[in-house]
């Protein structure tokens, strides 16, 4: 099904790992993601405890419409694929393809944030703000923390795009693109659990 890349030696490792210092930074970034995972885990735990405490506010079933949520899921899953493709082409030294897939990732991420903000504004107009009930507090804090991570990720991606234009694919910009891809896939995983446990479970 697959063959080693032509012209690349069997034991050559990707450049972002070939530099020892940059490789250490990738390991360090994994450690950051673990701590972030525990932050999200605690927010999920809070949501799990409060999701049935709706007070006088709407229940998850009354509040959620799956349409925008499915759109957000598609945007984020696709952007996870496009950043994966950017890393694939980064390892082939194809800067033009990296640009294309990376810009696609940023656009899809922005689409996700816009959809989510629109969704939140809709809820607020319905009177479903985060001080109405335990469920809504847990919901807005959990989903909002994820959304702010994505927003920060887009700003990070824009600065990285600027660096790629100025410096091309060096050891450092490769490592940065790789750690960005780790961050982005991580946010996709968190979203899958939000989609499952917050939205789908809300429709039981």
């Amino acid at each position: 099904m697959s063959t080693p890349v032509v012209g690349e030696s069997q034991h050559q490792i990707p450049l972002e790992f070939a530099n020892e210092e940059e490789s250490l930074k990738i390991t360090g970034f994994w450690m950051f993601l673990m701590t972030d995972m525990i932050i999200f885990a605690s927010l999920f735990a809070v949501f799990a405890v409060y999701r049935s405490r709706v007070a006088a506010g709407p229940t998850p079933d009354q509040l959620f419409h799956l349409g925008p949520v499915i759109l957000e899921t598609l945007l984020l899953l696709t952007s996870s694929f496009t950043i994966g493709m950017a890393v694939y082409y980064m390892r082939k030294d194809n800067l033009a393809a990296v640009y294309g897939w990376f810009i696609a990732t940023i656009v899809l991420g922005a689409g996700f944030v816009i959809t989510e903000v629109h969704d939140f504004v809709t809820y607020v107009h319905l009177g479903a703000t985060w001080h109405v009930s335990g469920f809504l507090s847990g919901f807005f804090v959990l989903v909002g923390t994820h959304g702010s991570h994505v927003t920060f990720g887009i700003m990070w991606a824009l600065t990285l795009l600027f660096q790629l234009r100025r410096r091309g694919l060096t050891d450092i910009t490769r490592r940065k693109l790789f750690t960005f891809s780790l961050y982005w896939h991580f946010l996709d995983i968190v979203w899958v659990f939000i989609f499952t446990f917050v939205y789908l479970y809300g429709k039981f």
Binding site: A18, L24, H185, F186, I189, V192, F193, Y201
Partner: peptide, 26 residues
């Protein structure tokens, strides 16, 4: 609920294994 959580875990494993190059290191 159990089934959709298992599907989400499968998705997490897929993202980690395929896209995050989980086993790569120097």
């Amino acid at each position: 609920l159990a089934v959709i959580i298992v599907l989400a875990l499968g998705q997490a494993g897929l993202q980690l294994g395929v896209f995050m190059h989980l086993r790569e290191s120097r």
